[in-house]
Design a protein around this nucleic acid. Structure first.
Lengths: 344, 344
DNA sequence: ATTTGTTATTTAATCGATTAAGCTTACATT
DNA sequence: AATGTAAGCTTAATCGATTAAATAACAAAT
């Protein structure tokens, strides 16, 4: 109804009391501050009648708290991050926080910009999916005592809170799953990255082969710079050369899998007979593929939820030790990695 | 370096001047306010040395502007909205705005909550993908003089700014495309909704059939309440009954298409021979499907970009008439709607 | 009558920036 | 010498809320 936004002062005038009383009453401090019953009731009524809404800017300026969380991800248009963002949004809301999201495009400079902007806007804390070469930014946050939690990725050499996945184990299990299905020549397509999570996926893949006495050919590991059809094409061609031809492929992210599968379709290869497939991450596309794709299920809901929990606890001052949570992934087996018939 | 955040006052003390001068200089008003050259330089230097960052809360409280845009969408984890969100984020940033995103889940109550929260946080304006039964909320914003632009969906009876798609025409063309390919028995699966954009898609489909002298069977139109396998299954079964069997299907959203295609796979129907397919909206999954899916391409980048432009213009006071932008979709033809051989 | 205590309320500083208005100088003009 | 005026700064109010400290009003105790 009311056109303009009423302030505390307006309510105070209407109730013929000072702003202090109004503030006390509306913030549930009437007991401690001994506000009279009648006056309190009157104030409450007037606030309600005029639909008083406090100005959060003023509140925040005074209290130093904005009840806002900055979420830095690589790209909100990537379903993996979008899913996480949704969980974070919901969990944050449950705790009375609003989320500002920024997409870094895996770019350290953009990430720094976003963090700066969000710090200026006085977010209470950050949830960050780190990009390559952002250790310094993380260190800065620690120096400035700004609370944050790293999500999905972390830097093992930095003593930060984080919530991420046991990528080594997940990759190890993915490879083992294929090996046990009779696929002994397994390729891996990931990103060329200094980021720990990707390194761990590769290490898991490699150690699984080693522990099964498989001597991996160097061509079996492809680390692309970007997810371009160009690179994927060349890499897969390489893996398919006769003298070291792979019969299974693990993709390090679902997007790489989609690019790879497109090319595999082009080549007319049949999954899983010509090539078995396991991918990290889930995708709608995997369900619709003629041969549903086996994937490493990342517990996005748990990841996001836990990250918010850890951060909110820090924000509420219920600190404790560093919270370093490592979650387990689960292999969802579908036909793309069906065990080989006992031939071959 | 500096641990604590310096305020204007701190800078002023270090420079031995009043806060007013510092404010003038750092806001580029030294000319109008005749600040001395030397002092100005000194202030600038000190601000730089100590990496002074203004407190946006204070600025906003004073100016009444937060340079924040509230974006209300149905669900950030839905790629369609996530893509739009990304565009909006980037465009907003170019204009110096930060975006807060909220997911309404197509639910009027949640939508209202989000709007309230964002209004309290004093966003400068809104970009809204409206849910059903939110006309009142839109009207409230108008009454309160809060700038906003409706995106992707609008209410024809409300005189608001909006940026959306010519859904009628897009659906008409989609149906016509199928008709011209020889598919005369076309079903449509959409949502049961009072929202204009969905009604328009249905109308476009229906009028295309009419104008081609096709008498549509009532079973050909399925309006689901929710996107459940249950409803889809029953509906498609219905459309496939012998006496009025369809040979082509239009899906009203990409998610409906994905659900529908899953069931079509289950049934063992071959696209496009048993059933031709056209879907609204694009999806990664469509590329990977054994028979790539023809779809109505929605110009998300243009939609998002234009919405931000329109809103920012309003925010800058460069008003004018109501901006009501209606964009055209484009049919991207793939094999799922390949013209029938001249048999049948 | 004075002190003490309790309850109920107001005053005013504060958060950090912006900005209209006021105050000093210095110097030019009459 | 008196007046005007422009340059260069400072003062202080303001945005809207919170909250420690001060004050008022009144009852009970000394």
């Amino acid at each position: 109804m009311g056109k303009k936004n009423l302030s505390l002062k307006d309510i105070a005038e209407k109730a013929q009391v000072s702003t202090a009383l109004v503030s006390y009453v509306l913030n549930g401090k009437e007991k401690e501050t001994r506000v009279g019953q009648e006056i309190a009731e009157k104030i409450r009524q007037i606030a309600k009648d005029f639909n008083y809404q406090p100005n959060y800017l003023a509140k925040s300026l005074r209290s130093g708290k904005t009840y806002t969380i900055g979420l830095i991800i690589a790209d909100i248009s990537n379903p993996f991050f979008a899913n996480i963002a949704r969980i974070v949004e919901d969990e944050a809301k449950k705790n009375g926080y609003t989320v500002i999201i920024g997409s870094s495009d895996e770019n350290a400079a953009k990430s720094r910009d976003l963090i700066d902007v969000f710090v200026n806007r006085k977010v209470d804390g950050f949830i960050i999916v780190s990009s390559e070469d952002t250790e310094e930014q993380v260190q800065d946050l620690m120096d400035k005592n700004i609370p944050f939690v790293l999500l999905d990725r972390h830097f093992p050499e930095l003593p930060t809170d984080y919530v991420s996945l046991n990528n080594y184990k997940a990759a190890y299990e993915a490879a083992t799953h294929l090996l046990e299905g009779g696929y002994l020549k397994i390729g891996f397509i990931g990103y060329k990255s200094r980021l720990f999570h990707m390194k761990e996926r590769i290490r898991g893949y490699q150690e699984a082969l080693q522990n099964h006495q498989i001597a991996a050919e160097p061509e079996w590991l492809l680390e692309v710079e970007f997810n371009t059809l160009e690179e994927i094409r060349t890499g897969i061609d390489n893996m398919l050369e006769a003298r070291h031809r792979v019969n299974a492929l693990i993709f390090g992210t679902y997007r790489l899998a989609i690019s790879g599968l497109k090319y595999i379709n082009e080549l007319g290869l049949k999954v899983p007979d010509d090539l078995a497939i396991v991918s990290f991450g889930q995708a709608e596309a995997f369900d619709l593929y003629y041969c549903p794709i086996t994937y490493v299920h990342q517990p996005m809901a748990d990841l996001g939820k836990t990250a918010v929990e850890v951060l909110v606890k820090k924000l509420k001052g219920e600190e404790g030790e560093k919270k370093q949570v490592m979650m387990e992934a689960e292999i969802i087996t579908r036909s793309s990695s069906k065990a080989k018939a006992a031939v071959d």
